[in-house]
Design a protein around this nucleic acid. Structure first.
Lengths: 199, 199
DNA sequence: GATATAATCGGAGGTGCCTCCGTTTCCTGA
DNA sequence: TCAGGAAACGGAGGCACCTCCGATTATATC
């Protein structure tokens, strides 16, 4: 039922088309972060230097655009996990990544509502992105456990739950500090009783 | 902190104001039923013969208007319960009211999304109206039980659950028939083994 | 390089949202 | 009955949404 794989998922875009598309996604990411889910689409088109018609051809509805921007950001977040793992001790990479997760969520708070609508309408998006995040977390934890810098008797789903709690916590003024402290606390708990901590 | 109680909850409206308000609610009910939650507010104002400014003064947001219309319709539905009880045998009244409930939900299907938003934003509305419906149902069932036309070992919450299932069932083309049959089935179950059925 | 053409662009235009404020209407107290 | 003032009216105006289609441009072909 899906189209043949070889010629790229959906046919290659013309050069100008894909240039514009990328520009739109970039500008949209900034606008959504600054103004939340109700940012003006015309403003986005204007700042991207394209007509409003072009925006609508690429993203037929606001939700389409929100989805693409969101997916892309999750990808960036998750690839940062591997990046961090390469350049840091496993437990440090894990700690740092969770802090980045908090920053990432912080940036998305203004869009909480739009994302909810998106998830409702297209639960696959939620499933995909949650899966990506869970697997990034899994890789980091596994490495840290293997390395002995984190205890081995932990359940990933407990950590996931804590992180999702961060996502759904009410939006108070000290949300960010609170969340960063929670992550630090989690890390302390994870390190406690690890092989390395007993040396 | 709340204002003094004596002079009516929020001060009496001027005659023209309350006339317009009623007109708006009436027109809005029709428009919402016909066009769903995205009916044009300007259209509603136009059909009600008032300026758009007047609509917005009475109902600062779309949700306000949706809420008022919804509340009013629940009131009508619930008062119909007593009406029916006065003019019919208790079990007939119960059956008929449940059928009306189905019709009522059918009319509200186009607004499901708006109502969800409303309930999320203001859970009190949901609590109030659910309560009204539950209590109407309770009165009808009690009367039918007392009368012996319906068995006495029933749990209202089971019926409520069946009715709420009707509300949340997916919107297929045969939804209405399905729902009416379900209600008929429920009534058969309720009558089975009642005092009167054993005569 | 020139040409054909299919893909893409872009913005005018019609509609709806919501605010603001000058005008009109109702009510009260004398 | 009337005058004064508070309350309510209503629509112009500014902005955003989204569609539609003539103009433009990238690419394949020769």
């Amino acid at each position: 039922m899906k189209e043949a794989k070889p010629p790229a998922s959906t046919k290659r875009l013309r050069a100008d088309a894909s240039r514009n598309r990328e520009k739109l996604i970039g500008v949209a990411a900034i606008e959504f972060a600054e103004r939340g889910g109700s940012a003006s689409l015309e403003e986005i088109a204007r700042k991207a230097g394209v007509g409003i018609g072009t925006l609508y051809r690429h993203f037929p509805t606001r939700e389409h655009l929100v989805e693409v921007v969101y997916r892309r950001e999750v990808e960036v977040l998750c690839s940062a996990a591997d990046e961090l793992a390469q350049h840091n001790a496993p437990d440090v990479a894990l700690a740092e990544w969770m802090q980045r997760f908090v920053d990432y969520i912080a940036a998305k708070r203004g869009m909480a509502n739009s994302l909810r609508i998106l998830f409702d309408a297209n639960s696959e998006v939620f499933a995909n992105t949650s899966g990506m995040i869970a697997s990034a977390l899994q890789r980091l934890v596994d490495a840290a456990v293997a390395d002995g810098s984190v205890r081995s008797d932990i359940d990933i789903s407990d950590i996931s739950q804590a992180l999702s709690g961060i996502y759904s916590a009410p939006d108070t003024s000290d949300w960010r500090d609170r969340s960063r402290r929670l992550v630090a606390l989690l890390m302390d708990g994870l390190r406690w009783g690890s092989a390395k901590s007993r040396r």
